[in-house]
């Protein structure tokens, strides 16, 4: 299975920017650099869309344009929080106006599947469309579905994405759980000895294809995710590589989801003592922040790395041909992605 194209709306403007001069953030969050939406979305549609819908739709459209595909056989989307801005607006009005005078737009667009549905509406795509809302494994569930559809011959191409946004209210609520540093700095985030990380957001879409088409970014060799596994991460990695006949020596680069929270980084440190100990490793959450579907950003970054041979923050590394991504959101939802150059 191949990643024919990919695009991410993220706190980084582009992969080139990520290589040359990654955007740096201070405080407790990273927010997306949004593209010129008029390039992707009709102006009559834009006015009704909240930010997450625009980010998701733009990422999906750019992804399809890069692949020169106008009609995917399936669309699967993963989001943990869904369309928070519309949900916030709708619920706030429910309270303020005593359940009367509710805006239909906010109601209609507050559902989690709005991004996937809006993409289908824009494409006039009546094919399979599903949205997964599974906390820290939402994107992984969407990817699992797409892989299944392609594997069973139900689809040749599948548009798969992960989207989540920060809004003021949700950020304030999550901050109460002591999740974020108050004075974080992405330049020094990873390895920081204090607790807390920096919040992030983003929308990343991929066009998976059962065939290797010209210009494809990467081959998705293997993927697996778990929920509260009983064995340590190092064992998961060893078993995963063994099952997919990918010896550690065949991997050129590891991308981990370490997020700078001293409470959680132990799991990633342990990997350095595992079969991966001799492999160069980088992190990605200093570029996009922490959020439940951040693995979609990591997968985009990994696909771009094997496609271009260039590694953000590690220019001296030889062009990696095979990359392993390991994320473990809140130490509950580990996931592994193995990619190789086309």
């Amino acid at each position: 299975m191949y990643i024919q194209s990919a695009y991410a709306v993220s706190p980084q403007g582009s992969f080139s920017e990520l290589l040359e001069s990654p955007a740096q953030y201070r405080g407790d969050r990273l927010t997306c650099k949004e593209p010129d939406y008029s390039k992707y979305i009709d102006s009559k549609l834009i006015r009704r869309m909240s930010r997450i819908i625009k980010m998701g739709a733009a990422a999906a459209m750019e992804c399809l344009q890069q692949a020169n595909v106008t009609m995917p056989d399936a669309i699967t989307t993963g989001t943990a929080y869904g369309c928070l801005a519309d949900t916030d607006q709708f619920l706030t009005r429910m309270v303020e106006f005593k359940e009367e005078l509710l805006s239909p737009t906010a109601f209609i667009q507050s559902t989690h599947n709005t991004v996937g549905a809006q993409i289908a509406l824009m494409l006039k795509c009546h094919h399979y469309n599903n949205t997964y809302v599974h906390r820290g494994s939402s994107f992984e569930a969407a990817l699992t579905d797409a892989i299944g559809l392609i594997g069973e011959g139900e689809a040749q191409t599948a548009l798969v994405g992960g989207v989540d946004e920060i809004i003021e209210k949700s950020h304030a609520i999550l901050s109460r759980f002591d999740l974020y540093k108050k004075d974080g700095d992405t330049a020094n985030l990873i390895g920081d000895p204090e607790k807390g990380t920096m919040a992030g957001e983003g929308a990343a879409f991929f066009l998976l294809n059962s065939n290797r088409e010209a210009g494809c970014l990467a081959k998705l060799d293997a993927f697996q995710n778990w929920y509260k596994p009983k064995v340590p991460a190092a064992t998961l990695v060893e078993d995963f590589l063994k099952r997919h006949e990918a010896p550690a020596g065949s991997i050129d680069l590891v991308i981990t989801g370490a997020n700078g929270d001293a409470r959680y980084d132990g799991v990633y440190e342990a990997l350095k003592q595992s079969v991966l100990n001799a492999i160069p490793a980088i992190t990605y959450k200093q570029f996009c922040g922490e959020y439940p579907t951040s693995a979609a950003f990591a997968l985009w970054m990994a696909a771009m790395i094997v496609s271009t041979g260039k590694v953000p923050g590690a220019a001296a590394l030889a062009a990696p041909k095979r990359v392993l991504v390991f994320n473990n959101y809140k130490q509950l939802y580990p996931s592994l992605y193995l990619l190789s150059a086309c």
Partner: peptide, 13 residues
Amino acid sequence: SIDALELIVLLQQ
């Protein structure tokens, strides 16, 4: 049609 609903809300509000 969605705008029509918004206009109904506007009149009431």
